[in-house]
Amino acid sequence: MTIYANSRSMTSSATVEWAWRAGRTEPAWRLSWLPNRLTREQARAGMELAELLGRSNPVSDNQEQARADALAGALGLTVQAALSVLHQRMHDRHPRD
């Protein structure tokens, strides 16, 4: 998994979520899946968390669980809250007929 970042945006090779710079002064970043403004570091954490939680087996060991907890914590979320938001976005993109 790779996050591609420049001064204006972040995208991922593993998720459709993205981040973009929405202003000149920090917190200036937004994530496609969260409504609040973030620092660049928080946006990066959000991208990494979306990648981690988007895998078929998102948290397979204690080390990955600890990483997910830390990334979610940087955003002021729990892993469960992040999973809920990301799952809802996936459902909204691909509703069942």
Rank of each mutant, 00 (worst) to 15 (best):
G76K: 08
R8K: 11
S84F: 07
R67C: 05
A28R: 12
R30A: 03
V79D: 02
N62W: 09
N62K: 14
R24G: 09
E64A: 13
E64L: 14
G46Q: 07
M90P: 00
A70N: 09
P27A: 01
R93Q: 12
H94E: 12
R96F: 07
D69Y: 00
R21Y: 06
L31P: 09
S56I: 10
A19R: 03
Q65I: 01
L31N: 09
Q65Y: 12
R24D: 13
T39D: 09
N57F: 12
V59M: 02
A70E: 14
A22V: 02
A66H: 14
L83P: 00
S56H: 15
S84N: 13
N62V: 07
D97Y: 12
R24Y: 10
A22H: 13
A72L: 00
N6H: 09
L86V: 05
E41S: 13
R67P: 01
E17I: 04
A45E: 01
R21W: 04
T78E: 05
H87A: 14
A50F: 06
P27S: 03
A14Y: 02
L31M: 10
A43F: 10
M47K: 01
L75Q: 08
L86K: 06
E51D: 10
V16N: 08
P35I: 07
A28W: 00
T39K: 00
G54M: 04
D61R: 08
A45F: 01
A74W: 00
E26M: 11
G23F: 03
R96D: 13
L71N: 01
E41P: 02
A5S: 09
S9G: 02
S60T: 05
A81G: 03
M90R: 15
S7I: 02
